[in-house]
Design a protein around this nucleic acid. Structure first.
Lengths: 265, 265
DNA sequence: CGAGCGCTTGAGTTCCCTCAATGGTAGTGG
DNA sequence: CCACTACCATTGAGGGAACTCAAGCGCTCG
């Protein structure tokens, strides 16, 4: 992972109409936004975008980032490396996820962020973010919700790695990723993309590659999932959830901020 | 852990001069506060305090808390229980720690909070908190810092449980607790209180009680620590830190918000 | 077509778990 | 004051989950 090969693209990227599309979808699991809220987000995301190739670093531990990165497209992850090379993946960043809300409060990154696939990010300056939240109370609340949900996910990962068996850990991870992708409209029936190598999965749930491989085979032969190429299919989501004690409440997708809804048609 | 036996004490508790003492000490690791900032915090903490006996619940998963709890005294923890009884302790709450910043954003608790020792908490209403942060920008920043640090600790725990050996995990936990207590002025030379049972330690780092016991003996016979009764002594903090790869940067105790300092004598 | 990477499999080992029993200490009540 | 209980720490023995090492297979890509 060498930090280079970064294309700076100012202005619109690709042919997609809205850049903040996935962030907006995500936030609307908390509360519905007004047209103006959405336009303000879109404007902030349009200022400056960046494309990073796969398996490359976005930010490295010790860096002092100056702006906030919003993932527009692709998968990234937070990770930490120990001196002897052991690595732990701490979080996955999917489209609509924000990378460094720390900016302007925590000076120095205490972990790194790297890509899994090629990724497009929007760089939002601290300044833009401040005017955005100052002018739109509902957005400020929604962004606060987003960071609280990220913290809740982190807590659940602690439980997952600390208490569950290999089978449960892996199944739980797959459930979480599937449900998160589905909430963004990025699944197709029981199927979604899973661009992770088995080594990356291993570094996520604290197992060896060999054991991840064998545990995947268990999940397959239990008829719960298929995983070929980079495509995951969960045949019995209900069944898998029960088998691994997955309870989606920690994702807080049930519109807990509905009392703040923008009342527009 | 049955929720009962809660003494409501309105007004001052004990004979300590300031209630918000530890919170203030903690926040001043980020930026120095003005006298007025501190008085505002103190006022908020004084409204209503509560005493909870040891090994009891403060809030239970599924509850919808109405106010924010600030730990004034004693140890508490966040935890989650699986259906079959396995339990993971997710975080320790020491004096000066805030429990449920979620309030007014996340409706429902996705985990429980219980006490380790007897605990005194201040209940701060969402309303008080809002006026506090609205009127004091520096405090708002400092409280934001506090929640970002809590998130950083959670990430480090993921690394700890996911990648480290039993010996390292346990040593790392002891380092973290010691350093956090020291930053509050709650250590005495190389010694601090450690009111945890071995079963609680086990549920924190994902090991069995038996193995925690044996690993503690390893740490002792390596001459790194003593642990008798509820008193921990770390004989060689430097050495322990090296042995378990503990790097305190994730605690962000180095006054990263010094540019916001109140300039008073 | 060789190189590199990721996935898979086998064999042997080790770390950590479970079960079970013991001892110490503090709290309770007769 | 002493039995009685409860909880916590400790120890031994045996078992199993997950690890390491090593090799082979099948892609993709330059």
């Amino acid at each position: 992972m060498c930090p280079q090969n970064v294309h700076i693209v100012t202005g619109s990227v690709g042919s997609r109409g809205t850049l903040a599309e996935f962030l907006i979808r995500k936030l609307e699991h908390f509360t519905s936004l007004s047209l103006e809220d959405k336009q303000a987000l879109e404007l902030a995301a349009r200022q400056r975008t960046k494309r990073i190739r796969s398996r490359d670093d976005i930010i490295h531990e010790g860096d002092v980032p100056q702006s906030i990165n919003l993932v527009l497209d692709g998968w990234a992850c937070r990770y930490k490396t120990l001196e002897d090379g052991r690595r732990q993946i701490i979080a996955y960043l999917l489209p609509g996820d924000l990378c460094d809300l720390h900016v302007s409060v925590l000076r120095e990154m205490d972990h790194s962020i790297g890509t899994i696939t090629a990724v497009t990010v929007a760089e939002i300056s601290g300044e833009s973010m401040r005017t955005l939240t100052a002018g739109h109370a509902r957005l400020a609340q929604a962004l606060c919700w987003e960071s609280l949900v990220a913290a809740a996910i982190q807590r659940e990962w602690t439980v997952n790695i600390g208490q569950r068996t290999a089978f449960e850990r892996l199944g739980h991870l797959l459930c979480e990723l599937f449900v998160r992708l589905r909430s963004l409209g990025l699944t197709n029936g029981p199927t979604c993309e899973l661009p992770l190598t088995q080594a990356e999965i291993a570094d996520t749930i604290g197992l060896s590659v060999v054991h991840v491989n064998r545990t995947l085979q268990e999940l397959r032969s239990a008829g719960l999932i298929s995983l070929r190429g980079r495509e995951l299919t969960i045949h019995k989501l209900e069944g898998l959830q029960r088998a691994v004690q997955f309870n989606a409440n920690y994702l807080h997708l049930d519109r807990e901020g509905r009392h703040l809804d923008a009342n527009e048609p």
